[in-house]
């Protein structure tokens, strides 16, 4: 990224964070819901899009972050609680990831599914740490001696953390560890041949991805104010994978686009359809649109919204350009309109 673009991006973030305070509570809630989901989706994107491992345990990892941060936050840890949520998420992710060193593709996915169920069960019965099914009440986050209470403040905080995470991950990809993620994803044998310690690289991917997901979990705890096992169920894991698919794997913007889509599209359908007053059908059509869109994306645009938007942008600028010069697009322009493949692992279990 050029220096100028960096400054522009930083300014945009500052503006967006400041803009949160102009929103109403409902608007602010939507912003932090999107931002928090996007942070976890960034974690998943690192794992799936850049390191080639699928996970259905995101829900449980968010839960681990939430319970850790909730407990420590209640004990007065403040900002440290958010960090600790991340660390706990990272450690748990490595533990879940260990079998992945021996399994791949589908089998790893099923292993994470098993981990999701076992953790969900533990959330329910380890009452001293989680308060069990009743759920754990979480006091508001205390940051620099001040209590963060309003939705607007949480929206600003979540957006800021999203930007930091994003920038951090982008940085990471320019380090040796980050570059080796890509090599391992494309071909493990080649990676070995290049002298990359594949096991270590994978463990790094699990650690970082889990850390990011855990931070998102910490924010969930402080914004929800109640951590219950039901909130960290398989449903959340599926939603996370859906965000990745719809947004686009292997592109950081895909995580934000996917989270925006999964959180806001049902709400938009709801608002648009409310005029008809059929609450029953409204929810059904909301679900139907959601399922259908997932299928359509996978079939027609597997690289997700990120690729779709980019194509759309190119088409638009081409249109503008051709209007301006009154010339038809050159073959070269058509050829570059295809987004370079950065999709996930293409290997099958068999």
């Amino acid at each position: 990224m050029s220096r100028r673009r960096q400054i522009a991006a930083a300014a945009a973030v500052v503006l967006a964070v400041a803009g949160c305070f102009a929103l109403g509570r409902y608007g602010a809630y939507l912003v932090h819901a999107v931002a928090i989901s996007a942070i976890a989706a960034l974690g998943l994107n690192l794992l799936t899009g850049f390191a080639g491992q699928i996970s259905f345990a995101q829900g449980a990892l968010v839960g681990i972050g939430a319970y850790t941060a909730g407990n420590l936050g209640n004990a007065g840890w403040g900002a440290g609680a958010v960090l600790a949520g991340g660390v706990a998420g990272g450690v748990a992710s490595v533990v879940i990831g260990l079998p992945a060193l021996r399994l791949r593709g589908l089998y790893y996915a099923i292993a994470t599914l098993a981990a999701q169920f076992v953790l969900e069960y533990l959330f329910k019965i380890v009452e001293p740490l989680t308060r069990g099914i009743s759920g754990m009440n979480v006091s508001p986050l205390v940051l620099l001696g001040r209590t963060v209470a309003s939705d607007q403040a949480y929206a600003a905080l979540s957006l800021a953390l999203l930007a930091i995470t994003w920038a951090g991950l982008q940085r990471l990809m320019h380090t040796n560890v980050g570059r080796s993620f890509l090599v391992v994803r494309e071909n493990e044998l080649v990676a070995r041949g290049m002298g990359i310690d594949v096991v270590r690289v994978k463990l790094w991917a699990f650690l970082v991805s889990g850390f990011v997901t855990g931070v998102s979990g910490a924010l969930v705890a402080f914004t929800t104010r109640l951590a219950t096992p039901e909130a960290f169920s398989l449903q959340l894991s599926v939603d996370q994978v859906a965000m990745l698919i719809v947004g686009g794997q292997g592109v950081w913007a895909g995580s934000l686009l996917g989270a925006t889509f999964v959180v806001l599209v049902p709400e938009a359908i709801q608002r648009a359809g409310e005029a008809f007053k059929a609450a029953n059908l409204l929810s059904a059509s909301r679900e139907m649109a959601f399922g259908l869109l997932i299928i359509l994306f996978l079939v027609f645009e597997p690289r997700g919204l990120a690729a779709l938007l980019r194509r759309l942008g190119r088409a638009l600028s081409r249109l503008v350009a051709s209007r301006a010069s009154r010339a038809s697009p050159t073959p070269a322009a058509l050829a570059t309109s295809r987004y370079p493949a950065t999709g996930g692992s293409r290997e099958k279990a068999h």
Partner: peptide, 20 residues
């Protein structure tokens, strides 16, 4: 790359204001 954030907040603000 970071543009979607500002775009998003613009959409959100519009949504919040447009609601009856």
């Amino acid at each position: 790359m970071r543009k979607p954030i500002s775009r998003l907040s613009a959409i959100l603000a519009a949504l919040a204001l447009a609601a009856p």
